[in-house]
Nucleic acid binder design. Sequence first.
DNA 1: AGCACGCCGACT
DNA 2: GTCGGCGTGCTC
Length: 725
Amino acid sequence: MSALVVRVALPVPIPQVFDYTAENITPGDLGRCVRVPFGRGEKTGLIVALPEDADLPVERLKPVIAIQREAPALPADWLAMVEFTARYYQHPLGEVVAMALPPRLRKADAVAGTEADPLLEATPEGREALHEARRDSRALAILRRLAEQGPRRRSLLREEEGAPAVADALKRGWVAPGAAADAALMDGAPELTAEQQAALEVLSEGFGCFRPFLLAGVTGSGKTEVYLRLVQQAIAQGRQALILVPEIALTPQLEGRVAGRFPSARVVSLHSGLAEGARSQGFVQAMEGRADIVLGTRLSVFTPLPRLGLIVVDEEHDASYKQHEGVRYNARDLAIWRARQCAVPIVLGSATPSLESWHAAETGRYRRVELASRAVAATLPRVRPVDIRREKLQHGVSEHLLRAIGRCLERGEQSLVFLNRRGYAPVLSCPSCGWVSRCPHCTANMVLHLTDRRLRCHHCSHEATIPLACPDCGDQDIQPFGRGTQRLEETLAARFPQARVLRIDRDAARTRAQWEALLDQIGRGEADILVGTQMMAKGHDFPRLTFVGVLNADSSLFAADFRAPERLFQQLMQVGGRAGRGELPGEVMVQTQYPDHPLYKCLEAHDFVRYAALQLEERKQARFPPFAANALLCATAPEVAGALAWLAEARAAALPLAQAFGVQVFDAVPMRMLRLARRERAQLLVEAPGRPALQGFLGAWSRLLWSIRPPRDLRWHLDVDPAEV
DNA sequence: AGCACGCCGACT
DNA sequence: GTCGGCGTGCTC
């Protein structure tokens, strides 16, 4: 019996791992959770290495308290992935592990609570009952479904028929767990179009090796159908498929579609709305190879998958793949790393790919596969800018747009007016003294919300009552300025009193249930005019929606962030894609002061390729990504001076390194939105010719950064490949 | 991040 | 005389 060394990653914000001694260690303990003494107390960490020698003299090591051997150990490839993430994003390993691992998994009860999802089939008694029953019941409906559609997973059946009915059928002995079935079995798959078929053939050549594909398919071209066929092929080979989707309520729709399509497959769905227990359970099922498909938002890129055979990243351009706090990882980029690590194909799908991915396809690093025609409707919507310099606006809406909505109403079809700004008005202001409703904690205005009669800061959630008179001069004539979705809703309701106007924004769809209820309402045709924010832009099909109007698009056109136009173009393409997805043709109008701007010209022509080329040329000239790699060092303090002073020190430490790695370290500057939640912020940009140079530099620099003693009240972090600069 | 130790102001 | 302020330093 010998004492050995284990290296443990602990959830502490220090870029270090800690060595302990332990008895009877086997190689199988690598990747296990472990309870250790730490400082005065105890902590739970993960064994990330079994080194020959400790960094410290062995006599200074403490022994571990207990190793969690009940739960399965995290596999080596998973450890390699979190280690890569920690290194690439310059974040302490223990914190990356703590983020990637469901909290329950660290305790023993998680594994015990793991429940299987049996494949249910009708028993002989059940089949008999189906023939002899006199009165219909929910349990009989289950039997009919099983008779018609074959065995299915309990979770799917619960979804379709309700959990009580399933429990009833099980209790009566009418259904029972059946023999193993082919998980790749597909139910209700539509015929593929010739184009989809061709795409599928190209993509399936990738199986068994690392092959990145960019599936560029216009909205409505049926990308999802292609993913599902690929997933089927992966499952048929006995492999697992990982499908990443953006962080939106898109999941329930796709979740239902996937589960319904593969009634025998074990589908695990992971998203932020999930309870801790369910998340742990899904994680363990995937890790033990008992799940065939994992479908989830960015965090699920960290799901261990021993039989991984395929990764799909849907809407790969979507900004929600990038985490904006804590470990600032990009799940799309990590997915690519993982695909290479596991030697599996990865399909990045989008109608409007990110310029990074598009460039990778242009230069041959990714293989591009196109779906150019719509699978459902024959034509793309007609898009045109409405020149608001030449038009009288009524409460911000042009007569052109209003008439189009009117025509839509007459035809009994739905229209959507898109305005990316919630609330009634973005600011309340006093015309006589110039007072504006500023947030006391942020460099931002408090937004007027009339529905609940509050002023609210959209950045820090600070709330206040609406003053009756100007707090500065007492003038009672304070006015809302500008327009948000609530005011637009009011305007449209006044103009079209006969129409049912429905607002869909984060205020109206606060919970998942509210959001789904709204979607149902729209689907049932219980709304004529929809008023929505960017929530509405994303992948939902409304067959009766034929007109989309866009307000206030210009604000992103000349924004300081170089990615703003890219996002605007993507958003407008997406929102335009909402129009006319059924049998009915669609129309899109964009209100603008710059109808001749190339962005709108490309949009009119549905020409993503030309827009991408224009943008990439601009990025090349300006040395922006993908022609450079960036990182931001951000600091916050009660006063901006403190943040700037620390950043200046950090910059001084960087300069000798910068030269060696060929990177440029710019001066520290206060952030555009200086104050956020009572703290002032500043940042410093690092620009490198490429990722290797950036990584080399950051590795050396961050060691120095940790050694600069920051003042007590200062916090800093590095953001590698930031979404906004 | 916690949680100690460590030296200087207003209190039972 | 001590309770407690948060500055500095460490955690295998």
